[in-house]
Design a protein around this nucleic acid. Sequence first.
DNA 1: CTGTTAGCGCGTTCAT
DNA 2: ATGAACGCGCTAACAG
Lengths: 336, 336
Amino acid sequence: MAAGRRAVTRDDVARQAGVSTAVVSYVVNNGPKPVAPKTAARVRDAIELLDYRPNPSAKALRKGRTDIIGLVLADADNPFYTEYASAIGAEAFDRGRALMIATARHDLANETRLVDDLLGRQVDGIIAASVSHRPEETMLRSFRLPPVVLLDASAPTPGFAGVGLDGASGARLAVEHLVRVHGHRRIGLVLGETNPEREDNRETGWRRALHDEGLPEGPLARVSWTRDGGYEAGRLLLDDPDPPTAVFACSDLLAVGLLRAGHERGLALPGDLAVISFDGTKEAEYSWPPLTVVAQPIAEMARAAVSLALDPARPTPFHQFPGTLVVRRSCGCPVA
Amino acid sequence: MAAGRRAVTRDDVARQAGVSTAVVSYVVNNGPKPVAPKTAARVRDAIELLDYRPNPSAKALRKGRTDIIGLVLADADNPFYTEYASAIGAEAFDRGRALMIATARHDLANETRLVDDLLGRQVDGIIAASVSHRPEETMLRSFRLPPVVLLDASAPTPGFAGVGLDGASGARLAVEHLVRVHGHRRIGLVLGETNPEREDNRETGWRRALHDEGLPEGPLARVSWTRDGGYEAGRLLLDDPDPPTAVFACSDLLAVGLLRAGHERGLALPGDLAVISFDGTKEAEYSWPPLTVVAQPIAEMARAAVSLALDPARPTPFHQFPGTLVVRRSCGCPVA
DNA sequence: CTGTTAGCGCGTTCAT
DNA sequence: ATGAACGCGCTAACAG
């Protein structure tokens, strides 16, 4: 605690270096005015000597920016989002911003309060994986709204920037692999609750890919976006008289739940049931069998999200990224 | 963005309510001076009408506190820590604080820079699951150090508060179950790198419990604290001529890696190899077989950590919590 | 190239 | 019970 010691301020540095406070500021911020090299060196020595650290509150008060990015997560149980959050944090740090995190725990009222708090704390931008399909429910309550970036955006949303994955072609990747490489003809879909006003891109992709392969539509289970939901989907799909031989799960978590349901029924996996999922988390690599996935490029998406959150005036406030098929055992391929 | 609109300040509220700015402050903060009920009501109406939100930077500048807690994580890939972080966030929010998160990604240099940044941002307290065994390596560089709480503390560390689990009795719980209920006589241990100067409590507990049961020490694998590490431990333990029939893994992640190694060798799990692990994350519940675990009381630990981070002058700055055995299939018990 | 100084919005002391 | 005024530490406009 080293109590009692008054914090070192800019004035102390100025006095120590024998210059005015403005010069200290110019040196610390590389501008906006030039400083003679020798003077600058003196100032830097004084900073070093006194271990001066600019007061961020004073800076924020003066500049109107906090250099903080707010991140709203519906859910910290989903490793996809925590890996995403970690990447966003790294990116933000590289750009000199800190990350303030709020997890809503699947609760819309929580989310509203957390967003409110973040807004009240004057974060420079908000990145959100919202609980709601209609983000304007929790945002937009304030007049002075910073840039807001929606994660998992499947389509442009008016008033918000968005970063998302190309779900349609990702789903197609999975379906085509199951059909062309492994000869499946009955492929189910598992997904969570989605915006009822607009079909999810992954669902669309699955549907179209099946159609293009000349196959009938497989069964569909809509559950909650959790491991428990995936487990429930297993009950819905596998206890059916005509179960699918393969399933595309719209998230790793759903697939993990589905796998457990399969194991409990004594199914051979992937023999009796092949699975491909969406996300590409580390957990999916360590499930049994290891999951073949359509991986999301988390690092690139994080970079885009932070850029958008920091710079509201982008020409294209909606970035969509392609997924990559990563083959493991759960599709039936004989890999390590 | 609703640009151009100047933020509403205390002065606007005062003008609107026909009072001085001091009175607005008294009302907002419930003090330090009393305000006549009628006046207070007028002020509250004005606040409501104008949608006034106090400026946190100005408040922080004035009070010298930011109402922000910093959380340093070595690792955002470990669901135990992300669940922990989520609980800490909820607890902090309940106490009116926001959470600033920094993930070091297993890198000590990263951690040092992140802690420095957090300190520079003048967080009111730091909660840390450090990369290092010697936290003073990354902390204590500053003279004005806020309260620091070490997560996963196995023993009191001078200068830091600590919250941890009673690893010794947790390990004992696991060993006794494997011995007394399932009759195992050769029980291995998997753990990550620990402080070389002091044996890990879980290791001690495992050793002592075996001894007390009249059993010889089983094999021990020390690897990195990751799924990959657990997988590696599988190689070390299972390819031995005299492999253990049961293993206690010091984290869920290690157990998950070990399970995969077992599956790949065609072992019956738990028949050929029983596993119990430490932590009790959701991932452990959905591995195959589902893991029997010694669960940590995350919510209580989070509460304690936040209290300690906010109040440096606690009498006992080291809290240790008991683990709970949660029985699933991986130990051999015939449960759902 | 360097110095002086006016606020940023707030909490609080001192006066009334 | 209320109000006037100061200063927290900083940036940047302005003056030299």
